[in-house]
Design a protein around this nucleic acid. Structure first.
Lengths: 207, 207
DNA sequence: TAAATAACGACCGACCGACGGTCAATAAAC
DNA sequence: GTTTATTGACCGTCGGTCGGTCGTTATTTA
């Protein structure tokens, strides 16, 4: 077959992008290396030239995903429209501008299939490591402004993000609609308690 | 080969028990049906006569695991030595008498292998559904006694259990020792904030 | 300077072993 | 005799391997 060589970093990125698309639409487990080969018109050996295993590839995909999210949120916080918001407003922006949510929706279509548990878990793990500090910074700001109060901003952020994500994401567990609704209703006051925030300040979470 | 027939419910339990042992010591992914067959001296078809797939078997194992835990905790709460403890003391008993922890330790030996992510996730999911209500009941008791304060006892329990478990269990993500230590130190005050509990009342968590 | 050659590494794809799962036959139980 | 628990040979699929090929670039040769 005709062979096209590309610069390694280009090819690597190509593979990651294609894999990311497949993993998100078809689920990780149900995506075969054969499909990835077909998508890219590439031989199997080429993929394994760049990634030592399917799971290694998953790791790269997740890193790509989370890093993108990180860049967006960082940029969001630095943007002029955010510069002089209160900490509470900033958190609202961070949460509601959930850029990753779109991609998640694709997943939710293939609901109830457990083939993406590994990917979800990995993603949440990396997400916490990389993005919790951003939330923590804003929380700290809030403490300075007197709206929040906590001795452990980072752990607080990790704790809330992990809890909410696990209890909300049907990719982890096939939660029922009623369970999800019940939790959504409770989250505002839970978060407010956690941060010692004014009553009602997080009611936007339930929307 | 000579064949020994057993009562279906006996056989079923046998398979679950053996699978449980293997899944916990060897990890789910790395446990093959062949190994399970060898352990039980049973043909493959027999297993598939009782369980439609490997994952179906996993589900049964997890249910077995969590139900056992549930029974123990329920019994613990009903026991005479717990009857007239304060809510705070009861929670301490619930948490420190973590019967499942032993089994987890086995897992921690095989550290950093992601082959059990699915099992861990499933387990936490079912655990929350079945055991959060027990914690919630005690929390409610604490509210009545005036040591706690929350409008959503159940969601509060789910939230804390999910968060702590995910951030603590290296079966989900290969957290570093420093990360784990850092979080353990923070948990008491996080939980106290969540429940509006007196300062220091949950310091036993960090031990 | 231009052509031949050597070295490198990106790329290929036939092949493999392992694994989950199937099913027709069969032995035990009732 | 009927039902049902059990067997194990067999299958398809999938992740992964590996010896080898071909395009590219640096180096030598004419």
């Amino acid at each position: 077959m005709a062979r096209t060589t590309k610069k390694p970093d280009i090819r690597r990125k190509e593979i990651i992008q294609a894999a990311r698309g497949l993993f998100q639409t078809k689920e990780y487990d149900r995506t075969t290396m054969q499909e990835l080969m077909d998508t890219l018109n590439i031989a199997k050996g080429t993929i394994y030239h760049y990634f030592s295993s399917k799971e290694d590839l998953l790791e790269a995909v997740v890193e790509d995903l989370v890093d993108e999210e990180l860049r967006r949120k960082e940029q969001l916080m630095k943007s002029s429209q955010c510069r002089n918001l209160t900490a509470l407003e900033k958190i609202r922006v961070l949460v509601t501008t959930d850029t990753m949510a779109e991609e998640h929706e694709q997943l939710l279509v293939n609901l109830h299939h457990p083939g993406n548990t590994l990917m979800h878990t990995r993603q949440l793990g990396r997400y916490l490591i990389k993005l919790a500090p951003i939330f923590a910074a804003v929380i700290e700001e809030g403490c300075d402004q007197g709206v929040f109060k906590t001795d452990h901003p980072l752990e607080c952020a990790e704790f809330m993000l992990a809890g909410i994500q696990f209890l909300t994401d049907v990719g982890f567990y096939p939660w029922s609609e009623t369970e999800l609704a019940r939790r959504m209703k409770a989250f505002p006051s839970l978060v407010e308690a956690q941060l010692h925030a004014p009553k009602g300040s997080f009611s936007f979470l339930a929307e």
